[in-house]
Amino acid sequence: MNLFRFLGDTAHLASILVLIHKMHTTKSCRGISFKTQALYVAVFVTRYLDLFYRWVSLYNFFMKLFFIGSSCYILFLMKTKFRPTQDPAIDTFRIEYLLGPCTVIALIFNYKFSPTEILWSFSIFLESVAILPQLFLLQRTGEAETITTHYLAALGIYRALYIPNWIYRYFTEGVVDPIAITAGLVQTGLYIDFFYVYVTKVLQGQKFELPA
């Protein structure tokens, strides 16, 4: 564990708490892509199957439980309590275009051709693009509630912090994970446009609005 990874995980944790907080305070999941949230459940469940056979640490164990539990809770809220505030008509990204290629790539790029390793690879690739339905929804509506942008910013910071973490690990432990690094760079790259608007508008106290 190093500071970059710990702060990254903290940002990830914070992003989820911000999202749940947004839903409870505004009594709405408006502006949130159900598809992205469902993809995150798939990501966590396929990646953390190792809960059953690999012990890493108490920290790792509880974080995994939290990510699986909280992502399922978010889906549950979106399908029950806040269902009327959800608009499937604007959440139209075709997730087949993500699931298909991620499956193929996971079958090609994995550390061992075994079910759990392939699922692990799949989860890494899927996480890198899982935010796309959300960014697509944002693009379609052209604006977002400030709290939703804080959620996205925290997620982006989490991804960004994993990059110095890998650099640090390479120099201190000699650990290199080509699959995680490649997917991680792609994932971080997807946030660049968002961050530009977030920094130039939201952090200056303006509303998040995309230029027409």
Binding site: N60, G174, V175, V176, D177, A180
Partner: peptide, 10 residues
Amino acid sequence: AADRHTKDEL
């Protein structure tokens, strides 16, 4: 590099 990966990240 595969075996040097520790799978301890979230």
